[in-house]
Simulated scan of single mutants.
Amino acid sequence: MALTAEERRARILDAVRELGTVRVVDLAERLGLAAVTVRRDIAALADNGLLHRSHGAVSLPRGAAAPAPTGRDRVIGMLVPTVGSYFDEIIDGARTAATAAGARLVLGIAPYGATEDRAQAEQLLESGVDGLLVTPNWTPEGPGGVGAWIGELPLPTVLVERRAPADSAGAGLDSVASDHRHGVILALRHLTGLGHGAVMLAARQDTWTAFQVRAGYAEGVRLLGLEPQPVIGIEHPGQDSEAVAERIAEGVAQGVRAVLVHNDQEAIQLVPILRARGLRVPEDVAMISYDDVFAALAAPPLTAVAPPKRAVGGAALELLLRRLDSGDAGLPVHHVELLPELKIRTSCGGVG
C-alpha cells in the first residue's frame, strides 16, 4: 500500500533528525521514494517551518535538535581549470585528505580561457556540496573578469593556488597556494651559485602561475643583483618552441648561458631544438624548468622547481573541513603559502 503524504513526511522528518544535513537525492534513496516526490514533500515541510533547504540538501531549522555534522557527512566540491599534469597532483592531495577524513570529493572543470567558472560553481552547489575548493580562471594581470560572485558564494570556500588581492571580492576567502615567487628565487639563486651573472626567463603568459613566475623573476633579479634580461614570452604553449629557441640562442651568443623555463612541457621541447642549433644542455646552456611534473623524464633530466602540489590540495581540503566544523566560532581567515623545492638534476650542470 502506498504511503500517504502525511506518512512520507513523517518518515522524512525522522530521517533528517537521525542524519542531520543530508542531500535530497541521498534521502530519497534511503527512503526508497522517488526524488521528485521527496522534493515536493520537503517543500511542504519547509513551508511549514519544519525543514530547512539549501543547495540540494535539507536539514532541521536552526535551533532544532539535530546531530552535529562530522567529516563523514561532508561532500566537498572542487573546481579546477584542467585535469592532467599539474592539477592531477593537487586533486590527488585533496582526494587523499578527503578520504582520510571520511569526506567525499566532487570535481568540476572550467577550462583555462573559458568564462564558465561561475556556472560550474553553481552546478556544484546544486549538487548539494557542503563547501567548495575553487581555482578561478584569473588572468595573468590579476583577477579581472571574475566578478563579485567569488566573494558571494553561500558556502565556505577555499581558493586553491590563487590568492585574491586585498581590494577584490575574494579577499575575505581562505586560500592555500604555492609561493611561486619563492620558487623562482630558489632557481635563480642556484644558478647564481654556479657562476651565472645573468639568467634568461622563457615563460608562458596565460595562467595565474605564469604571472607569479614572471613577478618572481623580476624580484629575484633585483635581489640577487643579476643582469636584467627581457622575458622571452611563450604566447602559444607547445607551438612557439622554434621561436623561443632562437631567442635563447641569441642570448647565449651574447654571453647569457642559463635559462629558466615555465613550464616542463616547454622545457622538454626546447632541449632537442637547441641541440639542433648546436647548443647542448647543460654544456652550453644551463636549464631549469618550472613545475616538476615531467622534468625528471627529460633527456637530460631537468633540474626543476617543484611546487608542493599534493600538499596544497591536502592543506586546502583540511582547511575547508576546519572552516565547516568551526561554523561561526570565529576561525580567522587563513592565507596559506607553501614553499616550493628545487630538485637538482643534471640540466643546469654542477652535479655528477
Rank of each mutant, 00 (worst) to 15 (best):
L3N: 07
R9M: 14
A10S: 15
G20S: 14
G20Y: 11
T21N: 11
D26S: 15
R30K: 15
G32T: 13
L33H: 07
T37A: 14
V38I: 14
A43H: 14
L45G: 03
D47V: 05
D47I: 01
D47E: 15
G49D: 12
G49F: 11
L51Q: 07
H52E: 15
S54M: 09
G56H: 03
G56Q: 04
G56K: 02
A57G: 12
V58Q: 00
L60K: 06
P61E: 11
R74G: 02
G77Q: 08
P81F: 07
G84N: 13
Y86P: 00
E89I: 08
I90S: 00
I91M: 10
A94R: 00
R95K: 14
T96D: 12
A100Y: 01
G102S: 13
G102Y: 13
A103P: 11
L105Q: 08
V106R: 12
L107N: 10
Q120G: 00
A121N: 02
L125G: 10
L125E: 08
E126H: 13
V129G: 00
L132C: 05
L133G: 01
T135L: 08
P136L: 09
W138H: 03
W138M: 10
T139K: 13
T139Y: 03
P143L: 04
P143Q: 03
W149A: 04
W149I: 06
L153N: 05
T157Q: 06
L159T: 03
E161I: 02
A164S: 15
A166K: 10
A169T: 07
A169D: 11
G170E: 00
L173P: 00
V176L: 09
S178N: 04
D179T: 10
H180T: 12
R181L: 12
R181F: 05
V184C: 02
V184K: 00
I185A: 06
R189S: 15
H190K: 03
G193F: 08
G195C: 12
H196D: 02
H196F: 04
Q205V: 10
D206R: 09
V213N: 06
V213R: 04
A218K: 07
V221Q: 06
L224P: 07
L226M: 10
P230M: 06
E235S: 11
D240P: 05
A245T: 01
R247I: 02
Q254I: 02
L260C: 09
N263H: 11
Q265Y: 10
P272D: 09
A276K: 14
A276R: 15
R277D: 12
G278C: 13
R280I: 03
P282Q: 05
M287T: 04
S289C: 07
D291R: 03
V293L: 05
V293I: 14
V293M: 07
A295S: 15
A299T: 14
P301H: 12
K309P: 03
A311P: 01
G314N: 05
G314F: 02
L317Y: 01
L319A: 06
L320V: 10
L321D: 05
L321G: 02
R323E: 13
P332R: 08
L338A: 07
L339M: 13
S347I: 07
S347G: 08
C348R: 00
